[in-house]
Computed example of a mutant assay.
Amino acid sequence: MFTGIVEELGEVVALEHGGDSARLTVRGPLVVSDAVHGASIAVNGVCLTVVDVKDDAFTVDVMKETLDRSSLSALTSGSPVNLERPVRPSDRLGGHIVQGHVDGVGRIVSREPGERWEVVTIGLPADLVRYVVGKGSITVDGISLTVVEARADAFTVALIPTTLELTTLGRKEPGDAVNLEVDVIAKYVERLIGDRA
């Protein structure tokens, strides 16, 4: 489990595509500092399992399902990525409950700069609209954010200077893809209510 509080902005070293999978190597000195084979690291919000650690980089295998459901397949050498290690039971939950299981891919629609912050509009797949509510939580490329406004086919978030500086959202442009994970609690509530109906 993760919190959506990005620990480090890493850099893709290599993405080698296979027939139905890929092998991704990422440089991230902080997250690698205690990584071992079998550890989990979230890359742009996708929970992946470490298969190798060398110097300041780690390697993971990415299955076809993950490539199809996320924006990871579009990464190239040099791409910046948001990195987070799993939360320890004794840690503060600074963001919200994030599983690292991407629900879909959205696209940046627009950016409206403010004095020190920006409002970013993100389009989302129709099947995720029902899970997004104003002042609710959403994960965008692994970043825990609060929804400012929920629309029929998009939502807005307000990015503070820290988020703009220390995550990939400071660099994304209109048209760029982002991984989305909706609040898992909303999905459980929907399932429980649906089973009773």
Rank of each mutant, 00 (worst) to 15 (best):
Gly45Trp: 12
Asn82Tyr: 05
Ser40Met: 01
Val60Lys: 08
Gly38Thr: 07
Ser21Asn: 13
Arg85Phe: 08
Val31Gly: 12
Ala35Pro: 06
Ser33Thr: 12
Ser33Val: 04
Gly78Ala: 12
Ala74Ile: 02
Gly28Ser: 09
Gly45Ser: 13
Asp61Gln: 14
Gly28Met: 07
Arg85Thr: 11
Arg27Asn: 08
Gly78Cys: 12
Arg69Asp: 10
Leu67Gly: 13
Ala42Thr: 06
Val60Thr: 13
Glu84Gln: 01
Gly18Lys: 10
Thr76Gln: 13
Val31Leu: 09
Gly78Tyr: 12
Thr66Asp: 11
Thr49Ser: 04
Val62Ala: 09
Val46Ser: 15
Gly38Val: 07
Val53Thr: 15
Val60Phe: 09
Glu65Lys: 09
Glu84Leu: 01
Glu65Val: 09
Ala42Glu: 04
Gly19Pro: 01
Asn82Ala: 05
Leu75Val: 02
Glu84Ala: 01
Met63Tyr: 08
Val26Met: 02
Glu84Pro: 03
Ser73His: 11
Gly28Asn: 04
Asn44Val: 04
Pro86Met: 09
Ala35Gln: 03
Leu24Ile: 07
Ser21Arg: 10
Leu24Glu: 07
Val60Ile: 10
Asn82Leu: 05
Leu67Cys: 12
Val51Thr: 15
Pro86Ser: 11
Gly78Gln: 12
Val46His: 00
Gly45Asn: 13
Leu72Ser: 07
Ala42Phe: 05
Gly19His: 07
Leu75Cys: 02
Val31Ile: 14
Gly28Leu: 05
Thr49His: 02
Ile41Leu: 08
Leu24Phe: 04
Ser77Val: 04
Arg27Asp: 06
Val53Ala: 14
Asp61Asn: 15
Glu65Asp: 14
Ser40Val: 01
Asp56Tyr: 07
Leu24Gln: 03
Ser71Lys: 09
Cys47Pro: 03
Lys64Trp: 01
Asp68Glu: 15
